[in-house]
Every structure is written in structure tokens, then in C-alpha cells.
Design a protein around this nucleic acid. Structure first.
Lengths: 223, 223
DNA sequence: AATTGTGAATTGATTCACAGCT
DNA sequence: AGCTGTGAATCAATTCACAATT
């Protein structure tokens, strides 16, 4: 009934995007998708909102509400077809095609992300990695033929290849400057691991993963 | 006025903890703390809610509301004393002392976290690392004398040392089992990097960092 | 009988607006 | 005059409750 407009607001920059669909719902949809993947692998054909919600760690009403944003694909009394639902969520989240992503900053964290592999499985391809000093990066960090470039080539590469997403794993102080460059070159979405609040135009989305803050806020809960 | 009770609810397990203080506020407080740190380093003595909020990437009213949970330390017409405010937030977030933390799973991601260093700076100390096959872990991953143990020693270590926090960086399928063990041994807070929804008792807090979901949900915003 | 889909109700978080200090 | 502190208002997200469908 409602469609594709994302509410401004959430934990990071998001200046009124393209759709009405709460950012949190977007995030959860991608979790549902992974759960569905597992079900598919196990050749399960249908699943109820109850069961899928359990797997995803949410309430079934929440799941149904979220799916409501995507459309109506359930069969009452029966549940959802795993295949259909996967396809539909994938459509909504955009693209079955592999999204090209660049990784910037191949230090400890960056190189781990390169080897991590989890991204590729989810439909992303890290097409190139950039570092200020590529010569100091250990070869072993590179994987499956990912090219390592000097940061100077960043803007050119992004433009030439129409890259729209970047993972930022540079040290804090460098982050804003890098962000300026890549945004200028056309990047629209940034996954930021540096503990820096990035200033970006309203049409660029940033998701922050602040590891230190995660840990620190957790510590509040231990007695 | 209100104090130290955290609202149940948020993006991960949190079964009615010890305080009333929105989980999101806790998270932001730890960001404010880092901004204050920087100000301290630059020998700034006072800061207004306006300025600090800007640095932290939030609205000044939000900052003031958050600080309201902690207490009243501002001077009207002037702002906050950087030093005092740091101390008070630190108090609320608990402990100036170093929190001991164990890291479980020394694969790509785990070893990067070990070398990352950002945790230590924020008052955490990774006191030991555990892996199923410690012999396969490259020495270079270890740092500053962190001991590497076999996973079998996990429970014993946690109990003996009274460790309350753990970082979980094991492959998805293993995560739940490890979680059971460490919770049994006394861990109360888990930073979970595996893409698994952990089932834990209500008095254990889990923060999930789901890298693939972060990236995937971002991709929704690129056109 | 089971399970979806969704308005209405509720709960929670954010922002406003302004009184009250310094 | 400037800036904090906060109740009230708003806005967003979640959950309830139940009608509709298979």
C-alpha cells in the first residue's frame, strides 16, 4: 500500500532518500533475506511469519509489517513461499546483480574485511581496494584477484567504473577527506568504520559501524 | 531525575536490565565521551551543547536530553566543563577501570579486532583470545602479549578471571554454542559479529554487528 | 484451523518551546 | 545575552487485535 520512500531519520545521515520505508525495516529485510537463503538451501518451500520471525529474532507481527512494505506474497492459512519471498525482497532491496563496492584503507580492519567473504555471498563484490601506502600492505591480505591501488587513483576508478558504494576503513582523521573525494566522484552510500562523524550531502547515505562505541555501550549492561 | 534503568527493547536481546536509560542514549553517550576526549586533548575547557552535538553528529536538544539522564552538570549561559562531563559520563557508563574482555574466534575478523587497538583506547582490555585451532592462528595476529588459548579453556578462564564481556567472531554456525558456554560461565554482555541471532537469557545483553546486513541495507539507497 | 494483512492503539524516541540560571 | 534543563508536543516504530482468506 505504501511504497518505496525512506523516512529521513535514523542513526546516521539520511537526507530524505527515494522511498518511504523505515530504515530499520530495510535493515531487517536484509536479515530476513539471509534467513530465507538458509531455508532455500535446506529445500524448505514455505515458511510462516511465525517461523521466519523466530529465525530472524523478531516478533511475527513485526515481520509481517515489514513484509507489508514489500507487497503481499503470503497465502493465508499457509505462509510464504520461500522462493517467491526471497525474490521479492531482493527486488525491493534492489538488484540481483552484484553491486560493485570499493574498500578504502587496507589496514588491520580493512584487510580483514577483504578476506571476510561474507559480503560476496550477499551480492556484493569488492572490486578494488585502496590505500595510501599500497606497498606496505601484505600480499596475503589480497584475495581472489582484488586489485590494490594507491589512493590517488580513487576518484578516477570510481568514476570510470560507476561505483556507488564504498567501505571506509581508514584511520579516523583521514576519513572526512576521503569521504569528500569519493562523494565527489559519485559514491552514494558509505559503510563507515572510522569513529568519525562524516559530513556528507543529504543524498548520500552513511551507515556507521562504531566498534568502540558498541563495546562501550555494552559495558553499561554488565554489573 | 530519572536514573539508571534501561528500557527493554532495541535492536538486540535486552531483557529488562538494570536501569531506565534508552539503549540508544547509552550508545550516544559513548560517542559524546569520545568527542570530549578529543576536546580534552586540545585543552578545551568548556563546550556548549550546540558545539558538542555538532561534533557528535546529533541535534543539541538530543544531546541535552541524553545528558539529562546522567545528571546536571552544565552551567547555563556557559556550557559544560569538558573534564567534569567526561568524568560523569564515564561514571554512568560504568567504570573507569579497564574492563576485561575475551575475544573468541581468531579468524580474519577476529585477528583484525585484536590488532585494531581502538578498544584498548576506550577502556577495554582484551585479556585473552580463544580459537578452536589455536595452532593455525598466525603469530602475527597476536599483539602485546595477549594469550591465545584453545576454546576448551574458555569457561574456565572466564570464571577464574571474572570476565563479564566477550567479543564473538566465530563462524555463524558455531556462534550459538559458544554463546551458551560463555553465558553459562558468567558473561553478561556479548558483542556478536556472527550473522546469527543468538538466543540468550534475558539478563544477558547482545549487541549485533552484522556487516553483511549493514552493507545490504545500504545498497537500498543507491540508485 | 491456520495464518496473513492491516487499521488502531500503544509505546518509545526526538524535537519544540520556553522557563530558569549565571 | 547565552545556554541549560525539561515538560509538552510531535513523530516514528512496534505491537495488538481481529477481519479476511485459503
Amino acid at each position: 500500500m505504501i511504497f518505496h520512500k525512506v523516512a529521513t531519520k535514523s542513526d546516521s545521515k539520511n537526507g530524505d532518500k527515494t522511498a518511504t520505508l523505515p530504515r530499520k525495516a530495510v535493515y531487517r529485510l536484509s536479515i530476513y533475506l539471509r534467513c530465507l537463503q538458509t531455508l532455500r538451501d535446506n529445500e524448505v518451500e514455505t515458511v510462516s511469519s511465525e517461523a521466519l520471525a523466530k529465525a530472524a529474532g523478531v516478533k511475527s507481527t513485526q515481520l509481517r509489517k515489514d513484509l507489508g512494505y514489500v507487497g503481499q506474497f503470503g497465502t493465508r492459512g499457509l505462509g510464504y513461499n520461500v522462493e517467491t519471498l526471497s525474490v521479492e525482497i531482493t527486488k525491493t532491496l534492489g538488484s540481483t546483480r552484484l553491486q560493485p563496492v570499493v574498500l578504502i584503507g587496507v589496514g588491520n580492519l580493512g584487510s580483514a574485511l577483504l578476506r571476510y567473504g561474507g559480503f560476496q555471498k550477499q551480492g556484493f563484490e569488492i572490486v578494488a581496494a585502496f590505500d595510501e601506502r599500497p606497498e606496505t600492505v601484505r600480499k596475503s591480505a589480497l584475495h581472489g584477484g582484488i586489485e590494490l591501488h594507491h589512493s590517488d587513483d580513487l576518484e578516477g576508478f570510481i568514476q570510470k567504473n560507476g561505483v556507488k558504494m564504498a567501505i571506509l576503513a581508514v584511520p579516523g582523521p583521514a576519513a572526512q577527506e576521503v569521504a569528500n573525494h569519493i562523494v565527489h566522484a559519485g559514491v552514494q552510500a558509505v559503510l563507515n568504520f572510522s569513529p568519525t562523524v562524516l559530513q556528507v550531502p543529504a543524498d548520500v547515505t552513511v551507515n556507521n559501524v562504531d566498534l568502540a562505541a558498541e563495546l562501550e555501550s555494552l559495558s553499561y549492561f554488565v554489573r
